[in-house]
Design a protein around this nucleic acid. Structure first.
Lengths: 197, 197
DNA sequence: CTCCAATCGCAACTGATGTAGCTTTAGTAT
DNA sequence: ATACTAAAGCTACATCAGTTGCGATTGGAG
């Protein structure tokens, strides 16, 4: 069988993907049901079950799409600025009324579904790899020690934001984001985020 | 109406609480169903629905119990040791085959249920308040600057562990826990976790 | 000891989620 | 054009979480 890029299957897939994102933005992961997605997309319920299996499957595909999209790693000229921009980007992403529920849904789905968790893992592996470039540039400029683990710096910078969002349910302000960036930077400079240490 | 500490209601409550924890330890939050808890506890399904509403309600009560239990804040004599012991405690808690699924269930339930999220928030407010004592002792010993925010140090120390567990789904080793402690310490010493800064 | 209020057990029911078997449609090859 | 095949549509059904109304049991008060 051949590829059918403009065929019915492709159209159905697009309609479902679009409907999934719209439903997520409106009702979050809680309100994401196969029935709603089917009705919104004009695709029949059984078709959605056959191709995606469940709402977790819909999330999986959305994640793979999100992973494919490159994301704007900050490049302000110095590490502090880059890290602060990065954490702000994360904080604002979750605060955004349209993007926030979608991103939150990814985390919620992963907690319930193994496959979604794998997809989310892959997503963040990709994000870390991209973001680490910011740290490597800083090392090249001599702003950070040579033996620093670039992805570890990224993890430490963003972790406190996620911790507040999904564990302690404390508010996350722009100041929190900046503080997280500064703390990660301090740790990186001190050698605590070294590659081998 | 009076309290009836040894009455039927109390017995029913105990049976359900115990069954909830047992089910969580065995099957995790995924496998926690009202029917299973009802059967295991010998309490009728309807009763569980009436008193707890749903599995999220069962989690809520388990959380309140967990919050009431004091937890062993390390006191080794120096900050580095205390922070490392703390992060190890968290890491080992989630790795423990009996405790891990229960703790994980708390996070999973909070993502789906508002009330569970509030209960989890309260739980961590309490944990932070207790753990912050470790930082205050360090300040008193002159190991950390006076203006450091004690609870912020705790957040930064444990956040990377939770980030790996519930966001990126990367493994969490003892070395990761220690590194997180050391990084938080470096940040605290640098002044990045100051109370007002 | 008797009665009362609260709570629990029970069985029948509702609604939503997910499945099975079959028919129809759309895209492709001859 | 015509025939072939993969995938989508459709109906009917199965399953299960959660609810409701009522009768039974429990524990305490007078």
């Amino acid at each position: 069988m051949e590829r059918r890029p403009g065929g019915r299957s492709a159209r159905v897939g697009d309609a479902v993907r679009q409907a999934t994102l719209a439903e997520l933005a409106e009702h979050g992961y809680q309100g994401l049901t196969v029935d709603n997605v089917a009705e919104r997309s004009g695709v029949h319920k059984t078709t959605v079950y056959r191709r995606w299996g469940s709402t977790a499957g819909l999330i999986r595909e959305a994640l793979q799409q999100a992973e494919a999209e490159a994301w704007p790693v900050p490049d302000t000229g110095d590490v502090r600025g880059d890290l602060r921009a990065l954490t702000r980007l994360v904080q604002e992403g979750f605060a955004d009324p349209e993007l926030g529920p979608v991103s939150t849904a990814f985390v919620a789905a992963a907690v319930q579904d193994q496959e979604a968790a794998r997809a989310l893992h892959a997503f963040y592996v990709s994000r870390h790899a991209q973001s680490a470039g910011l740290v490597r540039r800083a090392v090249a400029r001599g702003e950070l020690p040579e033996d620093v683990d670039p992805e570890e710096v990224i993890r430490f910078a963003v972790a406190p934001i996620f911790y507040r969002l999904f564990v302690t349910y404390e508010p996350v302000t722009a100041a929190d984001a900046e503080r997280a960036a500064d703390a990660a930077l301090a740790a990186a400079r001190s050698g605590a985020l070294g590659g081998t240490s």
